[in-house]
Amino acid sequence: MNANATIIEIVLSAIFINNFIFSQFLGCCPFLGCSSKIDTAAGMGLAVIFVMGLASAICWIVNEYILVTLHLEFLQTIAYILVIAVLVQFVEMFLKKSVPSLYSALGIYLPLITTNCAVLGVVLLNTQYSFNFLQSVVYGVTGGAGFMLAICLMASVREKIEFADYPESFNGFPIALVTAGLIALAFMGFSGMKIV
């Protein structure tokens, strides 16, 4: 992808073609950790969409107006992770005060998002593709939507797998990984759609 990508291309690419989990391996830890029940999976997905969208917007501004103007591009990683950590903390406080119902639904998943590599990943990719502000925000939100799609699919499959009869050593993570591999195989069908 490059800076000339249209919004529709970015949306399709982020959700289906280059899905963050199934083709870029970003955000696998929460994907495997929070996908045993569909409710928690949906909550995690929503939280990630929210934080990824906000982080893309704020990091774009930080990069464009602070780091680039001061020629401090080498501090990108540090600046981004700081922004994300502060942002997550801030969102947590804001939700606790003003939308307590959403806060209690997201619960412990909010702080965990700081170490979700999909969030840092999307911000770094925005810079790498040199997206403008609108493109960055769209990529962030739809990347989060792709994550949510993946984690909800995975949770619904895992609820069924509980009853399956697989070798004992595959208990827990291994069977989840193999399942994820098979879902990724299905997602490969989208890679035929070459638009960017």
């Binding site: 199934f22 083709s23 050593s169 193999v178 990724a184 195989l185």
Partner: peptide, 22 residues
């Protein structure tokens, strides 16, 4: 060829962890 694609990553790691558990 499938093993060099993303799917291969998931499945290989799954099998390695299973082996370790065994």
């Amino acid at each position: 060829l499938v093993l060099t694609l993303p799917i291969g990553g998931f499945i290989t790691l799954g099998c390695l962890i299973a082996l370790m558990q065994y």
